[in-house]
């Protein structure tokens, strides 16, 4: 007997199956950690350098993400507040997002010689902001009118409206934009750390391996980086997205 899509959905959403999924995720995590330890132990990778590099890169990406998030929310809300402003600035930002942020590197490195950290974070912020910004703009344009009216009728104005209505209703799109932006940040950070000649970072570490032609170690290092990013995605972003979309507005 073949189950219909509806029956399948009801089956996998049942508490019993959700618990099984959680158990499976924990098992996968444990397996990933065991593989990680195995690879590090037998591959002559400098675990301390690798992990400290990852932590440094993680902090840079996180700071850049937070700045990009705050800026994206402010800009999106300002743009969509007025149709005339939107018609002027939206095409401008649309064009600006195509500008390759790496092209700014030589200027920024020259201008901020003693601040490679600042250069990296600035470049990352410029990279991460676009998916979040356009995701929020899309969310603002598609938000339910009756919910807007209900918020207005029941007295949600100013800052109270922002925190009790606007941000909650935008949460699903903020998270989807953040997932994309975060991913793009990690794509860029390796190159950014190499170009800015950061003292510590995953990009710096992998760069050294590459320079010393330690190809196998480089491959292992990249594999471990992928594993770590997978864990962040699986245990942070996806559960957050699931929670947010659980309570998305019904059309």
């Amino acid at each position: 007997m073949r189950y219909s899509n509806l029956h399948y959905s009801k089956r996998t959403n049942a508490p019993k199956y959700q618990q099984q999924n959680k158990l499976l995720s924990i098992l996968w995590l444990l397996l990933a950690i065991i593989v990680l330890i195995f690879v590090i132990s037998f591959s002559n990778l400098n675990a301390t350098q690798l992990m400290s590099g990852f932590i440094a890169s993680f902090f840079r990406t996180s700071i850049a993400y937070l700045i990009a998030l705050i800026l994206a929310i402010i800009i999106a809300l300002l743009i969509t507040a007025n149709e005339i402003i939107e018609n002027i600035f939206l095409p401008f930002f649309d064009a600006l997002q195509s500008f390759p942020s790496f092209a700014l590197f030589p200027i920024l490195v020259q201008a901020l010689k003693n601040s490679p950290e600042f250069v990296i974070i600035l470049i990352l912020t410029i990279t991460i902001i676009w998916p979040i910004l356009f995701s929020i703009i899309g969310g603002m344009k598609n938000r339910r009118k009756d919910l807007e009216e209900a918020a207005t009728v029941f007295g949600a104005h100013g800052i109270k409206r922002l925190f009790n209505f606007t941000l909650p209703i935008l949460l699903p799109v903020i998270i989807t934009g953040s997932i994309v932006g975060w991913g793009e940040g990690w794509e860029f950070i390796i190159g950014a750390e190499l170009l800015a000649q950061a003292n510590v970072g995953i990009g710096t570490y992998l760069g050294i391996l590459g320079k010393n032609q330690q190809g196998l170690l480089l491959a292992f290092g990249i594999l471990i980086l992928m594993f770590l990013l997978f864990i962040i995605n699986k245990f942070f972003w996806l559960p957050l997205l699931y929670r947010a979309t659980q309570y998305e507005s019904e059309a």
Binding site: L147, E149, E250
Partner: peptide, 12 residues
């Protein structure tokens, strides 16, 4: 106060 045709309850 207002009551809406499609309820307009905040889903979150």
């Amino acid at each position: 106060a207002m009551v809406f045709q499609n309820f307009a309850l905040f889903p979150w």
